[in-house]
């Protein structure tokens, strides 16, 4: 565990808390893509099956349990508790366009052809593109609430910080995992456009709006 990895985890934790708080305090999930949240729940469920097979540390277990539980809680808030506020007309990205190619890729490019390893690989690939329905929704409506921008920024920073962590681990531990690295870079690149808007608009006190 190095400082970049820890910062990445904290950023990830913060993103989830911001999202849950936004929905809970405003009693509304307007502007949030339920589809991205379903994909994230699928990501955590398939990745953390090793909770049943291997124990790493109390920290590791606690974070995994939190990520799984919070992702289902978010889905509950969007599709049940506050479903009247869910903006389904703008959440039109087709999930199967992401899930199916990623599933095929996980079967073809993996470290080991075993069920747990394929599911882990699937989850890594899926995470890299899971935010697309959310970004698609923002581009469709042309704007995002400031709190939603903070959520997206923290979520994007999490994998960006992991990349620095991987560079660090490569140099100081001789450790690297190409599947995680490539997927992590793809994931971070998808946020670049948003990062630019966040720095040039949201940090200057303006709402995030896209040029028409």
């Amino acid at each position: 565990m190095n400082v970049f990895r820890l910062s990445g985890d904290v950023s990830h934790l913060l993103a989830i808390l911001i999202l849950l708080m936004k929905i809970w305090k405003t009693r509304s999930c307007a502007g949030i893509s339920g589809k991205s949240q379903i994909l994230f729940a699928l990501v955590y469920t398939t990745r953390y099956l090793d909770l049943f097979t291997s124990f790493i540390s109390p920290y590791n277990t606690a974070m995994k349990v939190f990520f799984i539980a919070s992702s289902y809680a978010t889905i509950y808030l969007i599709y049940l508790k506050f479903k009247a506020t869910y903006d389904r007309n703008h959440d039109t990205f087709r999930m199967e366009f992401l899930v199916l190619p990623v599933l095929v890729l996980a079967f073809v490019v993996n470290h080991d052809f075993t069920p747990l390893e394929i599911l882990w690989t699937f989850s890594i690939y899926l995470e890299s593109v899971a935010i697309l329905p959310q970004l698609f929704m923002v581009s469709k409506t042309g704007q995002a609430e400031t709190i939603t921008s903070h959520y997206l920024f923290a979520l994007g920073m999490y994998r960006a910080l992991y990349i620095v962590n991987w560079v660090y681990r490569y140099y100081f531990e001789g450790f690297y995992d190409l599947i995680a690295i490539i997927a992590g870079v793809v994931q971070t690149v998808l946020y670049c456009d948003f990062f630019y808007l966040y720095v040039t608009k949201v940090l200057k006190g303006k709402q995030l709006t896209l040029p028409a």
Binding site: H12, I56, S57, M63, K64, H111, G174, F175, Y176, A180
Partner: peptide
């Protein structure tokens, strides 16, 4: 060194 068992990351 290829990762397989070292899944300590989240």
């Amino acid at each position: 060194q290829v990762n397989k068992q070292n899944k300590d990351e989240l």
